[in-house]
Design a protein around this nucleic acid. Structure first.
Lengths: 349, 349
DNA sequence: CTGAAAGCGCTTACAG
DNA sequence: CTGAAAGCGCTTACAG
């Protein structure tokens, strides 16, 4: 259908061998100046672009990195978080003249996750894995296989794995302390993320640390990061017998493990006539876009997702090229940023 | 670093040639049942996965499609629209056992857009191009080159190009009519999208068609799809001399070309004490997530981005495989869905 | 110094 | 029927 221009075509036009043309294009000084220029000229005229397959086969290098969304966290696909990650990965990959492959999990044919097949087929020279579950076997195998992999997130059980994350425990402790210290809240509820992900566990821990240190009340309801589960958690709290009077919200502060759940929770609170932030202070986590546009805006911890991804990809290239600084800690932690908005009582609007 | 298992390894283990092993794995009946099973068993044991580069070179097929974001629309990267598109493309690609390459425009080295290099290097067998500008030369060249390409959007100037879009003119006419007919609005403003994109032009046309048919007033302010430009447009309208009294908003209905601008506009209206929807009915376009979470929720036209992408990718495979239905129209239009929310005065909340 | 072979991994067309 | 060569496009190590 389309005439592919190969190195041979370029070589033939100049009257040299393909090998010579290859060397000319790579700027080798084995080739005379005149020939080299002639080859470059011919390549330009013909619109020659090296075949990625030919190169990959010869160089044993795909010239691509894979961005993997494990089946254990399909919920991130379709979320702004992933866009930020993709942006960061692309930026770094572009700088390294490398393609980006996005690999979701299609089939799990013969027990091998699709993304492991991607790696084993050498379609990509390395992989960025984002937000895998704690006990995701496929990821563990991928890391153990020795293929260059950098994880985004915290993986205490995979302590030899290279990873880039944030300190969820400290971040959640800080935002909980904000509720206690700045807004005087003493009856707190935490709606958790998915507890099979380390972030879910860590954020819960940070919350518990803060309420314990403050001597405040700190209850826990398990959520799953969806807007709906935030709504359900609030409904559960409202209907709880402990509330004394059903319909009266028994907390004066809620720490949601992400902004989506905070939105769902605020919806229910409003519909039941519970005022945010007057009656209840609400905070979320993430700041991937949503927290800024709701009414009231959600006070939150901003995760530097794009930067995490960019740094993770840089580290991945270090692994691939063998230039990785072996003295560097395998796990890197980036700072989060506290963003005060109206839902906790800080800003107006 | 990692021992790659090749076909030769599998073959050696069974005591046949690589060629025979290849045939065995592909299920050829040239190979005896026992040998075939032995080869498959060996492949399983060794964890053999075919090299994508070897296959690509031999089959002259990359086994990948590219999803391209032209430099003329970098604003879509980092927007939920792109996530929906990526989801749709991935779904279809997975079904075809094909990789997805995401290609943003890095360098524009030697006048060739990065994505044209991707195509010419045969890293991908075809490309999905999303939301290109009307006069984007690179895209036109890509289409003209004969490489399999399917565009998402409307491209009347590229009438031989295969594309999947929506009818922006009709959709915008309908949502404008809604303001006139259901809410009795007569003084309308349209804040346009980027007018170098066909959607911007078409939505403006739909708005103008509707106001003309209704005999209503219909002013235009040019925007660029950003939240900020929506805010600026409203500020401009507020300060306009025509308004008579500055600070009084001179319209009772605003049709924003997307939801982001509607949000920005509503922010300013609220801050100036103009009530939405009581004083002014507001509508947007897209419904990629934001319109549902604002207060009030934004009445909008939902673009079926994921389905557009899925269908576009299916058509792309038709082109690549040469099984495309030549009788099918080159441009396909999908229906949009009117979503009534509070910003126009329909729902409450 | 330079020409041309070898080989990356695969699959199919060909020779026996 | 089956064995093994040829060749996809590339680049480097080798032979001259």
């Amino acid at each position: 259908m389309v005439k592919s221009v190969t190195l041979k075509d370029v070589a033939k036009r100049v009257g040299v061998t393909a090998a010579a043309a290859s060397m000319a294009l790579s700027g080798s000084d084995r080739i005379s100046d005149t020939t080299r220029e002639a080859v470059k000229e011919a390549a330009r005229e013909l619109g020659y672009v090296p075949s990625s397959a030919g190169r990959a086969l010869r160089n044993q290098r795909a010239g691509a990195v894979a961005l993997i969304v494990p089946n254990s966290s399909q919920h991130v696909f379709g979320h702004m978080y992933f866009m930020h990650v993709l942006t960061g990965v692309s930026e770094s990959a572009n700088a390294h003249d490398t393609q980006v492959l996005v690999s979701t999990n299609a089939d799990e044919a013969q027990g091998v996750a699709a993304y492991e097949r991607v790696m084993r087929s050498r379609s990509a020279d390395g992989a960025i894995v984002t937000s895998a579950a704690i006990d995701d076997d496929n990821i563990q195998r991928l890391v153990a296989s020795g293929l260059p992999v950098v994880l985004i997130g915290n993986f205490p059980y995979l302590d030899d794995a290279v990873s880039v994350g944030i300190d969820d425990v400290t971040a959640t402790r800080r935002i909980t302390e904000h509720l206690v210290e700045v807004h005087g809240r003493r009856n707190l509820l935490h709606v958790t993320g998915t507890l099979d992900h380390q972030t879910g566990v860590d954020r819960r821990q940070g919350f518990l640390d803060a309420v314990q240190a403050a001597g405040a009340r700190g209850d826990i309801i398990e959520g799953d990061l969806s807007e709906q589960s935030g709504a359900l958690a609030v409904e559960l709290a409202l209907s709880s017998a402990e509330a004394g009077t059903p319909g009266v919200f028994p907390y004066d502060g809620v720490v949601f493990a992400n902004d989506d759940m905070a939105l769902g929770g605020m919806r229910i609170l409003r519909s039941k006539g519970v005022a945010v932030p007057t009656d209840v202070s609400v905070v979320g986590f993430d700041d991937f876009g949503l927290a800024r546009v709701t009414t009231p805006g959600i006070t939150t911890m901003r995760i530097p997702a794009e930067e995490m991804a960019r740094i993770a990809t840089e580290r991945l290239f270090g692994l691939i090229d063998g230039t990785a600084d072996l003295a560097a800690p395998s796990h890197l932690e980036l700072p989060v940023e506290f963003i005060a908005r109206a839902s906790c009582g800080c800003a107006d609007g």
